[in-house]
């Protein structure tokens, strides 16, 4: 009954935000071109890296493309859901309309992180999937059931981790209204996710496994594609993802408590 209500509300969210975005049609077209150019650019850069001896960090070009594909999907998801909603929450806080959200008989985290959608990110997601299918073909990966389910699990976990990081930053807007710069820092770090983590030096690898869990976001799913991943890594990713999700929820509730005791 409750789930049905949330589904119904989400359908409305989808409809209203698609309708608002369609008010700016040229914008969508430009964003689509941007997504395509961006993928071409990344592959171009990757090809430069492989000019030397055909390996970086022990990965072949065809294998590194898998990382690229997963990154593109995740980036598409970020652009479709996380980024527009962050823009929205900043607006809510700056204009003081968060009050309206809090007074709605619906979960505020649900409302705030899913209200908006940017359709031009869809293409990026599709491009990422095409690239992945292409990689499955050139790497001759067997589409077994266990492979499909493991890759599904790991990619979902990546999405959860990524969502939690974004939502965490969105939440901090309650204290610091300007979070654009923090977002820029995050984006520049996430940029690393385009490349196999092994191609970096040891210290950076440690940094990107612990502080910003890029290792979990793109590397483990790619390893699943190559059949390299150990079970414990996948289990660890599931645990990390749940910890991130729970923390983001707790942090939001904490922030709301602060908001309602300090705002005026």
């Amino acid at each position: 009954m409750n789930l049905r209500k949330y589904l119904k509300v989400y359908k409305k969210f989808l409809y209203t935000s698609l309708a608002s975005e369609l008010e700016y049609k040229t914008n969508i077209l430009i964003d689509l071109i941007t997504a395509i150019l961006s993928l071409i650019g990344s592959i171009f850069l990757l090809s430069i890296f492989f000019q030397n001896n055909g390996y970086i960090g022990g990965w072949k070009f065809e294998q590194a493309l898998i990382v690229q594909g997963i990154y593109t999907i995740l980036n598409g998801i970020t652009n479709t859901w996380f980024n527009p909603n962050l823009t929205e929450i900043v607006k809510h806080i700056r204009e003081g309309t968060l009050d309206f959200v809090l007074l709605k008989p619906i979960d505020s985290q649900f409302f705030i992180s899913l209200k908006k959608i940017n359709p031009s990110g869809f293409l990026e997601i599709m491009l990422g999937f095409f690239l992945l299918f292409f990689c499955i073909k050139i790497n001759q990966i067997n589409l077994s059931l266990s492979f499909l389910s493991l890759s599904f699990i790991t990619i979902s976990c990546s999405i959860c981790i990524l969502y939690s990081i974004w939502f965490f930053i969105s939440t901090t807007t309650i204290w610091f209204v300007k979070t654009w710069n923090a977002i820029e820092v995050l984006r520049s770090f996430l940029y690393i996710g385009r490349f196999p983590l092994n191609s970096f030096s040891f210290s950076l690898r440690v940094f990107f496994s612990i502080f910003i869990p890029i290792a979990f976001i793109t590397t483990i799913p790619s390893e699943v594609f190559l059949g390299l991943s150990q079970l414990w890594k996948i289990l660890l990713e599931v645990i990390v993802a749940s910890v991130f999700l729970i923390t983001s929820r707790k942090f939001w509730l904490f922030a709301l408590k602060f908001y309602s005791s300090a705002s005026s």
Binding site: K5, K8, V9, K12, T16, G96, T97, F100, P105, I106
Partner: peptide, 20 residues
């Protein structure tokens, strides 16, 4: 301070509220 969706006719916001 407004809660209506800026780019859409008000009726769309009403139906969104109705589902909420």
């Amino acid at each position: 301070k407004q809660q209506l969706i800026w780019d859409l006719p008000p009726i769309e916001s009403f139906y969104l509220n109705a589902s909420i």
